[in-house]
């Protein structure tokens, strides 16, 4: 995935079954953000794989004051990349069988 300066990782191991996964997001490189970034630490949250969109969660983070409006896109993309990888891994494990 592209280096957006925002890192998103699983906050707990994915068992491949849960509808909601726990993710952890933090800024690795504030220089890649457009708006002024106030160091706030790693943000842990749950993400409903089938119900939510990464952009929607990014917007909530903007509304909560973690990021500037102009960075909603880059945060959304970072979440989207990680979610795509998780979904791909899940599909692959289903294809591989038990």
């Amino acid at each position: 995935a592209e280096d957006t300066g925002v890192r998103v990782e699983l906050a707990e191991e994915d068992d491949g079954k849960k509808a909601a996964i726990a993710l952890k997001l933090w800024v690795e490189d504030p220089k890649k953000l457009k708006g002024k970034y106030k160091e706030s630490g790693a943000i842990e949250f749950t993400f409903e794989l089938e119900k939510e969109t990464p952009e929607g969660v990014a917007q909530e983070m903007v509304e909560s004051g973690f990021f500037h409006e102009s960075d909603a896109k880059i945060v959304g993309k970072s979440i989207r990349d990680r979610v795509a990888l998780i979904k791909w891994r899940r599909e692959r494990s289903v294809l591989a069988g038990p």
Partner: peptide, 27 residues
């Protein structure tokens, strides 16, 4: 280290905790 902070937004819970320095770039 600071304790984790919890921020609620429209029904979602964000838990904020310090990032280990080893996970940051340019440190």
């Amino acid at each position: 280290l600071c304790a984790a902070q919890v921020v609620h937004s429209a029904g979602r819970r964000f838990i904020v905790s310090p990032v280990p320095e080893s996970r940051l770039k340019d440190q």
